[in-house]
Design a protein around this nucleic acid. Structure first.
Lengths: 194, 194
DNA sequence: TTAATTCGGTAACATATGTTATCGCGGACC
DNA sequence: GGTCCGCGATAACATATGTTACCGAATTAA
């Protein structure tokens, strides 16, 4: 993970190098839970290979919120920052290779980098991107019908649809697997709105 | 607006003072558009008095995304940072008194403050809060039924329901005004799920 | 003040989506 | 090879939500 940042931000190389030793590389099978909903997040997670999802559990039904693939990093921000119980579960979809960087070291890294304007800009842009991402997801739910959300996904992130089992996609667009099947067959029959 | 920050972060007082002169205080009537969807945001907006909403327009139907009240600040982040067209409109609900701080000065302020660790922490926490907010809204749409969303609003933000016209609330929870009326009368009859 | 407009409630009907159940395919495991 | 199980399709029915239309109260404009 830190190597990934190092490639993107070589100016800060000495900092990354110093913390490389603390991250743990692990290979895990599919359906491995990396963080349980309700537990406090202890690590920043980086995906080297494989595929991970964040999921909510409501009255026994599992709903997928987000997907992560190679070269993406994630954590439960609220849990990480505030030591609050995570609202979602983090789980592998495929057998994956991940890096874990414990929270203490992330905090130490940030404390060291707090004087570096380059790092400041990096953090702000990362945070801004995430905020914009979630805001757009939120806006999409207010604005779009589930069918439209599926079509958007098909248009903007076809790799997700190709790679991820369909029942995860269904809850992600806000519907049941049955209804997603209906939508797909409707599209296949050429009866979509487009 | 800057006075607001000055009260909360007196350590940075000299910076706030310097920029106070650039902000413009304005009183505007209800239903005044402060930023049109599709336009680039030019100001950071701070609400001294009144009430503002962010809204999306889809095929002629107006949908409310968020409400802002006294002592809250807002802008279209994507538009502000990337000079991208704003995805939403910003409009007053009530007659309001607002402060506008032009983008150039906000950027200059950030550029000056970039070396202040206190400011760094402030910015990160502001950004983190916003991200958590939008993420929770997003999660709520995946997890909850519209009726549940209305009940959540009633429990967590009753001031919004008391203060804002109901048709804005309806689109905010993701339904039509007709259906919101149904839900309300159902609750009044004591038939809600709780 | 009256007149106009906005806002919220309700009904009847149309459509979208959920629920439950069944089937079939294909991979995992022995 | 066979058996089990995860996954996706489909049907029939139930429920949730949208659409249109109408009414009356409340607010605003003249």
């Amino acid at each position: 993970m830190l190597l990934h940042f190092k490639n993107r931000f070589p100016q800060l190389a000495p900092y990354w190098d110093k913390y490389v030793q603390f991250q743990k590389r692990t290979a895990v099978p599919a359906k491995t839970v990396l963080l349980h909903e309700g537990k406090v997040s202890g690590n920043y997670i980086f995906v080297e290979k494989g595929c991970i999802r964040a999921a909510l559990n409501t009255n026994g039904t599992d709903k997928t919120m987000q997907f992560f693939f190679e070269n993406e990093g994630l954590t439960s921000l609220e849990s990480f920052i505030k030591n609050a119980p995570s609202v979602f579960t983090i789980e592998t979809i495929e057998p994956s290779v991940i890096y874990l960087l414990p929270k203490v070291h992330v905090k130490a890294l940030i404390a060291e980098l707090i004087h570096e304007p380059e790092f400041f800009k990096l953090m702000l842009s990362v945070f801004a991107e995430r905020q914009i991402h979630y805001m757009n997801e939120f806006a999409s739910f207010i604005r779009d019908t589930p069918e439209q959300r599926y079509l958007n996904l098909l248009a903007n992130s076809p790799h997700i649809i190709k790679r991820v089992p369909q029942h995860y996609i269904a809850s992600y667009v806000g519907i049941t697997t049955v209804h997603l099947s209906r939508i797909k067959s409707k599209i296949a029959r050429g009866n979509s709105h487009f």
